[in-house]
Design a protein around this nucleic acid. Structure first.
Lengths: 216, 216
DNA sequence: TAAAATTCTTGATTTAAATCAATTTTATCA
DNA sequence: TGATAAAATTGATTTAAATCAAGAATTTTA
């Protein structure tokens, strides 16, 4: 692996990619770097006293919450360059969600107060951030519509198609355990398994373990 | 009704309430005012060529999208002071949702380009907006967890409780037709009707037409 | 690499909510 | 106001997905 660079880590976040180098250098001064979380460890959780946001430098994490009866509800999947908790950069508030490393994961993080100071001086950054928020809101609303209009099978297919489009390939790799993916899609592992098989029988996909080939 | 004031309209939005008067005056110069939409008319819809956000001055509107088979999926309910479409203030993007007046409604609106110019000059405003976004994100995620962990009855009760807490009363008025509320909660009108009756039988609520009294 | 643990799959059964259908109630407007 | 339309309720039936259960496959770890 190449040598670690704080700027490289921050730059992985779309939010920061295009910032001028001077701004990135300032960001480095208000951020923590190279924090390692072994697979299975908790990166963030409710009442952990941490604020601010994290950037995934390497690895993979899942964002989830617990239902009343203690079941995980997976809300999102984080990969290299993804950010989480940006909403806590502004409000004195802590995450209500758990973020758990699903493989060995390195993150860098930015805390609220430091970031706010920087923000005051850099309106550019605000605009970037606002834009990012806008995108996230649109994505969540989109997701909400999907959840309410598609049945389990359609939902899986829509998810796989999104994945294929994002990656520009027609062969996608499932980045989470199927049980977590199922939770993310709002269904049980059993249903996920069955519907995946049906989709294969329908000739819509070809499943090879964790790899799925989309037919089009 | 008192005389219409653009500043009063903008001030209804929590986003702008606490802005210094000079900023509000600037906002007035980049916004349109006193647009009337009769009950049943469409305030915004996909591909209407409008960008930017709206503030509800008077009246009530529902935000919805259409499923593949043409059914409405209600995503939100807008009332006096609520804002919609703030994400379009940043990204050149148009609403993917419909906003429909469910009673005679007045709105004021702010367009993207004008607003961005103002934003460049007023970092205060950015911070406010970022904060508002953060809240909205948290609220949406919260909702998402509820949807995925509660059954129809619990969801209705949770909604009514939220409503009662917001208004600080224990008697709440349903602000939408029940069929729209049902859609918002992700259930059918029939289920809504039945579960409401069950909740009454359980002694959790008392229904009087559009008014519902919460027992606690 | 073997043992233990977790995840995945498949089948049988149950269940919550949707759908279909028919009134009743409420709202709209000519 | 009365006529018409829309919304809400209630009942009967269907259905998609959950649950329960048990074995197969995979992953973890000692």
């Amino acid at each position: 692996m190449t040598k670690y660079s704080p700027i490289a880590c921050l730059s992985k976040a779309a939010l920061f990619t295009d910032l001028p180098i001077e701004l990135k250098e300032k960001l480095v001064t208000v951020s923590e770097h190279q924090q390692k979380f072994p697979k299975g460890s908790i990166i963030r959780q409710p009442d952990d006293g941490k604020d601010g946001m994290i950037v995934i430098d390497q690895g993979k994490a899942k964002v989830y919450n617990l239902s009343k009866d203690g079941k995980e509800v997976v809300l999102g999947i984080l990969q290299k360059g993804d950010i989480e908790g940006q909403q806590h950069l502004f409000k004195q508030s802590e995450s209500e969600n758990f973020v758990e490393a699903v493989e060995d994961t390195w993150v860098c993080s930015i805390n609220r107060v430091d970031f706010q100071n920087l923000l005051q001086k850099t309106p550019d950054l605000s605009l970037k951030l606002l834009n990012n928020f806008g995108e996230k809101l649109v994505a969540i609303e989109h997701n909400s519509v999907l959840r309410n209009t598609l049945d389990a099978k359609e939902r899986i297919l829509a998810y796989l198609n999104d994945l294929a489009n994002e990656q520009g390939k027609n062969e996608v790799k499932l980045e989470l355990k199927k049980k977590d993916l199922a939770s993310y899609l709002g269904i049980t592992p059993e249903t996920f398994s069955r519907k995946l098989k049906e989709l294969e029988k329908d000739g819509k996909i070809e499943v090879h373990g964790r790899w799925i080939k989309m037919e089009r």
